[in-house]
Design a protein around this nucleic acid. Structure first.
Lengths: 251, 251
DNA sequence: CTAACATTAAAACGAACGTTTGAACGATAA
DNA sequence: TTATCGTTCAAACGTTCGTTTTAATGTTAG
């Protein structure tokens, strides 16, 4: 059995390199030989310290998700204590959940954008063991935030809230994972999207994370606040959709 | 050179099986031996008919994306002709872009939910040749729709529109790809989310696509319509975010 | 019939994969 | 010093990968 001595150096170097390479090439697309040679350790080091390639991926995530979801729970505790008998506002709940994650992207010691991108990409990875792992890692924090949103929006059907939580998670994950995938689709460079932002250096991950957060949070709030569709939106092409009348001209 | 005779049977069987297996196990996670044996064709058939595994994936997508993006361009043509000198409404533009895709999920002969899920997952796949392929396949339709939204929302900064288009693409892709990934995260079964919908059989892909569309379109519209954040949203945890005042109580 | 051709079939190719082995190394403690 | 134990190392394990090869199979046209 390992887990005792001065293996910290090798272990952490493997985790850092694996985090980056899994992000760049995917799990199946990253071989142990590439990981170990990039980390400048022996090929057998991963199996010695982690047991297997699957366990390595889980270790990469556990290192970050432990902190993240702990922080999320703590933030929600603070909000609910501040609110007393009442409930925190939906915007505060979203800020606690998504803002905590986006702030990780600004902190290099927490993995920075590398980890955020890896997380976004891995959530769609079909491998079974990954889904099982995420399900257990996320179970508590999702349950807590779902309940908080139910309380904060008592007049909205719970099913609708879950759907929109689902959509918000998707928008965030893609916004992060797709900074170089969908940017190709949208045909824009990062610099073109800076707008009137104060940070101008587009290569800085931290600045990117700040700009992303600045744009994403209003979008998520807008989606969460969208009026309920009481009728089925037109599936035939001809008439305009149901909630058309209240389209605000400013956006 | 191939491409002449009665290979339709083998070719199509390979495409159908590959579409499903790539969706279930990912590109790197699906071997040619599994594809060919599931399609009940010889191992060499893929290389004979398509040339390589990469070319097979591209062929799977070309078969669907050709129709999809053609339909999208046609729908936008109709809208702009109807609008005459004015511009189509943003909600109509979104309906043309996203509704066309979601309607594919209801039609088994167009790939149904299988193709939609594959598309959502592959957009985050890091392999270089896939990104190049998507960039060329999507270039025209994205450019047209971006221009249409610019015209429809002349007072909104173009950078903001591109960001929100990006977010909407993400929300949609995840909503589709994650029906069994993020459903685990949200801890809910599909049946629990049916709500007051008219279709009750949760196993029917077509019904799932309709329900998804019903929920997703209002969310996307709400996100697109969200007020611009003029100030940076609070990155410190303490005060509530900027656009808090106009949070509508009903959602 | 037979020559030409597109397709299928079985078998093998070399390369790369994740993992395991057993010896060597280096620090610590009796 | 010697024994112990965590760690590193080079080498090899057996398997699976995508692709290629060569021969057999039909089907079509002269």
């Amino acid at each position: 059995m390992p887990d005792q001595k001065n293996n910290y150096d090798t272990r952490e170097r493997i985790l850092d390199v694996a985090e980056r390479l899994f992000m760049e090439n995917g799990y199946e697309g990253t071989s142990m030989r590439v990981v170990t040679s990039a980390a400048e350790v022996n090929l057998a080091a991963v199996n010695y310290h982690f047991g297997s390639k699957e366990a390595l991926l889980c270790a990469v995530f556990r290192r970050r998700l432990g902190w993240l979801n702990g922080e999320r729970l703590r933030a929600l505790d603070v909000l609910e204590e501040q609110a007393g008998e009442t409930s925190p506002k939906p915007s505060q709940i979203l800020e606690a959940f998504f803002g905590t994650l986006l702030r990780m992207g600004e902190d290099q010691s927490l993995g920075g954008m590398t980890f955020l991108r890896l997380l976004g990409r891995t959530l769609t990875e079909p491998a079974g063991f990954i889904r099982t792992f995420f399900a257990s890692e996320y179970a508590e924090v999702i349950a807590r935030y779902k309940q908080a949103l139910f309380r904060a929006l008592p007049d909205v059907p719970k099913a609708e809230i879950v759907w929109r939580l689902h959509f918000m998670l998707g928008a965030m994950s893609y916004a992060i994972a797709g900074t170089d995938v969908l940017q190709v689709v949208t045909g824009c460079e990062l610099g073109d999207l800076a707008g009137e932002s104060s940070d101008v250096d587009a290569d800085d991950d931290s600045a990117l994370a700040r700009r992303l957060s600045q744009r994403l949070m209003p979008f998520l709030l807008g989606g969460l606040r969208a009026p309920l569709s009481l009728t089925t939106p037109s599936l035939t092409a001809s008439p305009a959709s149901a909630s058309d009348g209240d389209l605000q001209p400013e956006i």
